[in-house]
Computed example of a mutant assay.
Amino acid sequence: MDKIIFILTGLDYAGAEAQVIQLAIGLQLRGWLVQVISMIKPSAYVEELNELGIELFTLNMKKGVPDPRAIRKLKQIIKRFKPDIVHSHMIHANILARVTRVFVKIPVLVSTAHSNNEGGKARMLLYRATDALCEITTNVSQDAVQSYIKKKACPANKIMFVPNGINLKRFNKHEQDYKEIRSELGLEEEFIWLAVGRLVEVKDYHTMIKAFAEVVKCNPHARLLIVGEGVLRETLESYVQSLQLENHIMFLGIRKDIPRLMNASDAFVISSIWEGMPMVLLEASASELPMVATDVGGNGEVVEDGVSGYLARPADASDLSKTMQKMMSLSKDAREEMGKKGRAFVLAKYDIDAIVLRWESIYGELLSTRTQYRKIERGIQ
């Protein structure tokens, strides 16, 4: 039985974390023995992993506080489990796993970044300085891969594009959800925009809210549902009040019924100033929901401009507002056609079952190459 450890900074309800969980589950179903390690105390997916019998460990690190003791803790877990593959995700876990490899045997180490922006020059220098300690680095969009090559974080021959995948079975069109959710929220004939994501600077909700204020002036029946939590919630709520949009914007917090919310909405919007490959856009596509997204990172690789949605300039409230109004001006049939094309697109490129098989193939090739290399080493000796 093949063994794999996934290491990531933390477990929260966010895109990268959701992807790791899906990969862990997918590989377990294919016969792998899987462990997950969270550097900081996990705040999501604990029950789900326990129910599936996937062991979850934490290094009990504090967010933003480097702790060299984590190397010893990680080393002990790896030494006990003896994995064939260690697959780390995001900058902190990637660097920790690479450094730990100096002290413990890891047959194959894979590093995955989930954005075209994981920090400034110092972090890119860390990637470059530790590159020899991993077999390969991957990123979740073509745009991000090119960005990392340009920044010299990774040589071109050691980085590759592997997209996120989505469980399409979870996201289907259900008319019953449309009626039930709208009834629960006290919304009926309104045009509902849905936004899902952490309430943090990178998602640029200020620009979204400012743009939506202009949308409401021309379309008073428009409503915006914002799903997620984060450090900016109070600030954003105050901003909504200052614009007198309390009756038009609803903050729903963390929700576990995202598929139902998508089925109850008319369109999806994301206003990030940078991205990797947003899971929420894959989910919106799978839900046949037409999208408006800022043209950053992998957004344009999911949203086909004018086909499954529209792209807007980042950090530009005026352009985002015009683009949202352009979507609202379409007939219902036209928007539904966009949604169908979006689902067909993700079905062809981002189905999680196909992505899991692709990762299996990558792992297999890396293990085979490593085995051949060791045979050559022994022959030379």
Rank of each mutant, 00 (worst) to 15 (best):
M1Y: 09
D2C: 07
K3F: 09
K3I: 06
K3H: 07
K3R: 15
I7L: 15
L11I: 14
G15L: 03
V20T: 11
L27V: 07
L29N: 15
R30E: 13
L33W: 05
Q35F: 07
I40A: 02
S43E: 14
L52I: 08
I54R: 13
G64A: 07
I71L: 11
R72T: 10
Q76N: 11
I78E: 09
F81N: 08
K82W: 00
P83L: 09
N94C: 01
L96T: 02
V99M: 06
T100P: 06
V102Y: 13
T112L: 00
A113S: 10
H114M: 04
N116R: 14
G119H: 09
G120P: 01
G120Q: 05
A122S: 09
R128A: 12
T130Q: 13
D131E: 13
A132T: 08
L133H: 07
I136Q: 11
D143G: 10
A144Q: 04
C154P: 01
P155K: 06
N164Y: 06
G165A: 08
N167H: 02
L168F: 05
E175H: 09
S183P: 03
E184F: 08
E188T: 11
I192H: 03
W193T: 14
V196A: 08
R198K: 15
R198P: 03
L199A: 12
L199Y: 07
Y205C: 03
I209K: 12
K210P: 05
K210L: 07
K210M: 09
A211R: 08
N219D: 08
N219R: 14
H221E: 14
A222R: 03
L224V: 06
R233H: 10
Y239I: 02
V240P: 08
S242P: 10
M250P: 03
K256C: 01
D257W: 01
I258W: 01
L261A: 09
N263G: 10
A264N: 15
D266P: 01
V269H: 07
W274M: 04
W274T: 03
E275K: 04
G276Q: 10
M277Q: 14
P278K: 13
L281E: 01
E283Q: 15
A286H: 12
E288F: 04
P290A: 10
V292S: 10
A293Y: 02
A293T: 03
V296C: 05
G300F: 04
S308V: 05
L311N: 08
A312Y: 00
A317Y: 07
S318M: 04
K322P: 02
M324Y: 01
M324L: 15
E336D: 08
E336S: 02
E337A: 07
G339F: 00
R343S: 10
I352H: 05
I355V: 13
I355G: 00
L357Y: 06
I362M: 02
Y363M: 01
T369A: 15
T371G: 00
Y373F: 14
Y373D: 06
Q381T: 03
Q381W: 14
